[in-house]
Amino acid sequence: MTLTWRASGFLLAGFVAAAVTGWAQPPSPLEKYRTLEFPPVVENFDKGWKDRVALEYEIINAADLKSLRAALKDDNAFVRSMAARALGILGDKASADALADLVQSDPEYMVRIRAVDALGFLKMRPEAIELAKKDRDAGVQWAARIAAGHAQVDWDDAAHVRRAFAAGIRREAMGSAQVGKPAPDFTAQTSDGKPFRLSSVLGKKPIAIYFAAFEG
């Protein structure tokens, strides 16, 4: 009993201390994205990429839908972009109207691109996708053409992307490929939907791998 009272005392002291100093809540994944040391701008192309990769995993795997929906109205265009991307991948049909609004009226092309991408994943608001084909920015027009086709496919790409993120990534494995060392193994999916594992083809033929920047 004495011990229990003592424990309660410590707990109470902890609450009081926290109330005085403020709870030291860890920042949310979106907040961390907002305060990235190297935001996703061209000047940081080769800097801070591991943080951006790790945070994208964290946001898609752990951010709650309510926060993501609210983030579509964030002041920071990168946060809006990331929220739009995550909501599309997470299949949040409730955010379709807000995404369509972004496609039509967000001042930043990077946000409009992510929003129209998301509508393609959701297969919703085709009229907003069509309008985006006439966007003032060529990048958005391109994304809209892709999204229009994406909305027509008969498989669930969003579910596949979610599973890939859910598998997680180890930070220490990032950038582990080194010339002179065994090629790191990885899994992927062929363009016709078949599973692929690099190790299944290693040691048979010389292999060339090209990592493309985007789908163009």
């Binding site: 951006r52 920015d137 363009s191 920047a213 985007f214």
Partner: peptide, 26 residues
């Protein structure tokens, strides 16, 4: 053979992930 690496896992292992705005797009 074209391979989909949708979460960028293979790309990160090989150190090529960037996730950046460049050339007018992501």
């Amino acid at each position: 053979t074209a391979l989909s690496d949708p979460a960028g896992h293979a790309s990160a292992l090989y150190g090529v992930s960037r996730k950046c705005v460049r050339w007018g797009s992501w």
